[in-house]
Design a protein around this nucleic acid. Sequence first.
DNA 1: CTGTTAGCGCTTTCAA
DNA 2: TTGAAAGCGCTAACAG
Lengths: 334, 334
Amino acid sequence: MAIRIKDVAEKAGVSTATVSRVLNNDPKIAEKTKKKVLKAIHETGYRMNNVARSLKTSRTRTIGFLAPELVNDFFMTIAQGVEDELKDSGYSLIVCNSNESSHEEEKRIELLAEMCVDGVIIIPSSSRGEHYNRLKNMNIPAVLVDRLVDDFESDAVLVDNLQGAYKAMEYLINKDNSEFGFIGGDLSLSNFRERYEGFCLALEYNNIPKNPDYIKLGDCHIESGYKMMEELMNQPHPPAHIFIANYFMHVGATKYLTSHGYASKAGNQTAPVHIASFDDMTLSPILGFSDLTVSQPMKVMGREAARLLLERISGENEIEENRIVRLETNLVTH
Amino acid sequence: MAIRIKDVAEKAGVSTATVSRVLNNDPKIAEKTKKKVLKAIHETGYRMNNVARSLKTSRTRTIGFLAPELVNDFFMTIAQGVEDELKDSGYSLIVCNSNESSHEEEKRIELLAEMCVDGVIIIPSSSRGEHYNRLKNMNIPAVLVDRLVDDFESDAVLVDNLQGAYKAMEYLINKDNSEFGFIGGDLSLSNFRERYEGFCLALEYNNIPKNPDYIKLGDCHIESGYKMMEELMNQPHPPAHIFIANYFMHVGATKYLTSHGYASKAGNQTAPVHIASFDDMTLSPILGFSDLTVSQPMKVMGREAARLLLERISGENEIEENRIVRLETNLVTH
DNA sequence: CTGTTAGCGCTTTCAA
DNA sequence: TTGAAAGCGCTAACAG
C-alpha cells in the first residue's frame, strides 16, 4: 500500500541498497546517483518505515519519558527541557504517564521496553524502584530525575533540596524569628525528606524550637495543601511563617486562605501568615501571602537528564559508575 | 541478546508458530500446550518485541497526540482524557509537542507517520491545516480537538464557544450593563473567533455599544494577557467589565492588576474591574477580580476524541462523513 | 561506488 | 491442533 524502498529503487533504476545508502547519508555514493535517488524519493513521496528500520538496526531512536502526571507544569517543564536537548539529536520523546502509581509505572515500563525505546527518563512516582530493574535486564539505560528510589541505581539529576530549603528559611528567619510551620509531602520521598531536613537545620542553627504541631505532612497536591493549611490555621495559635515544600501544596494553602477571607499581602503587611515555598512557577507571583520561592532549574534538569542518557546510549566511553548531578536552586523574591 | 520467540519455542519443545498463537490468545490451541508455552515464557522471562510484530501486522497500537505545548494544563488535561479512554483498549499514547509552530508540527507529523502510529489526535497550532493531509495520504486517521483548520477535513471535537461566551456575558450584563472590554487571541483561530462572536452578540442583543478601544487581541499567553490588560487600564476611562477568552491571558491580566497595586475582590467590591473568562482551571478560584469562568469539559473532549479515533481505526463501520462533536460549556462561579 | 543477499523477530497462510 | 515456511521493509556484510 505505502511506497517502499523497493519502489523508489525501481523508479530510480538502482538497487534498494543504494536507496538505503542515500537515506542514511552514506558518504561513498556518487553525487549523480544520489540526485537520481533523491528525485525518485521526491516523486514517489516515499517515507521511511521506521518500524522496519528499527527491527534491523535494533535502535528506535526514541526515548521514553515517564512522569507521575501529565497535568503538572513542573514535570512538563522538565519534559520540555528534555525535548530541547534532544531536538538536534534525531531522537524523539515518548511522554508517558504513570498516574502516580507504582503499578501503572511498572506497566508503562514494560510497554516502553516492548516498544524498544533506546532509553528512559523517569520521574519516580514513589520511593520504590525495584521494578526499574527490568530496564537493566533489557539493557535499556535509565536516568532518574527529581528523586532517588530504593533498590535501583542509575544516573540521576537532582537539585540541592536541603540547601534550597535552608536558604529560604534563612531569609524568613532574618526577617522575623518567631514560629515556623512546615507543610510538605511524604518524607519517604528523597526530595521531600531533604527539604524537611533543610527546614529543621535552619531552625536548629538559629536556636528556634521546632513545634511538632506546626509540621504538616500531606501528599503534594493542591487538596492536601488546602487541608494542611486548614489544620495549621485552626490551631489556637497558628505559626506566623510557613515553609511549604511544594508548589501545588502552596496553591492549595493559598486557596484555603483566600476562600476563608484572609487578606493577602497586597498593599498591607497585616497578612496572618507569611509563606515561602519550593518551586517557582509562572503563577507563583500571584499567589498572595508569599514573596519568596525556591526556584528549581526545571529545564536544565531535563537537559541534563537527556545529556546523561544520550551518553549512555551512544556508549562511547563505557561509564561504570552512576552519575548523580546535583543542581543548585535559586531564591526568587516576588 | 534478548530472548526471542524462538528461544521460548525450543524451551517448550514446540514451534514458533505455536508460541505466537499463545501470545495472541488463539483459541484453537490445546490447553496442555498452552500451559507448556506459558511456563517457558515465564522461565525465560520472554518479552514481546513489538517492533517485529508491528512490521508484520502493520499496526503499532500506538496513537499520537500532538499539542502546541506540553507545559499547559488545558492541553494536558485533554491528553489525560484521551489516556483514560485508551486505557483498556491496548493502545498507548505518544504525546508530542508542536511548539506552536506549523513547521514543527509538520515535522512531528512526519515523525509520527514514520513511527507508524495507528492514528493521531491533534490540537492544531494554527489555522493552517494543509500539512495534515500527509496523514490522509498515508491512511492514518486523525481527529482535531479544540479548533478547526483550513484545508483539512476530519473528525473533530469542539465546544460551543459562541454559546459559552454569550452565557458568560449575559451573566455579567445582568449584574451591571456598563462598558465591556474583551481580551482574546488571534481571531483566525476558530475557537477565539467564536468566543468573540459570542461576546459581540451579547452586546448587540442588549443594545450595548461596542467600543473598539476595549477590544484587545493578543496571542493567548500569560505575557500577552498582561500586556492587553495594561493597554486596557492605561486608557483614560477603562471598561469596568472584561471578558477574557482564555485562561492564560486571564492569568496574565491578573498578574498585571496584582503587580500594579489594584485591590482584588477579596472582601470588598471596590475592585476596579470585574473579569469573566473562558476555561475553568484549578487555579481559577484564586485569580482575584473574577468570580465567573466558562468551563470546558476537557477530559470529556479527550475521551470523545479517542472514541472517534478508535472507531476510525477499527474501521468496522466505514464512516463516510466527518463527524464534528460539539460539547457544551458550563458556567462556574467562584 | 553499487548490487546481491541474508536476515532482524514476528505472524500467518497452507499443509499435515 | 500444530509445524514449516514465506515474508513485512529495511540494513549491512560481502563481493564486484
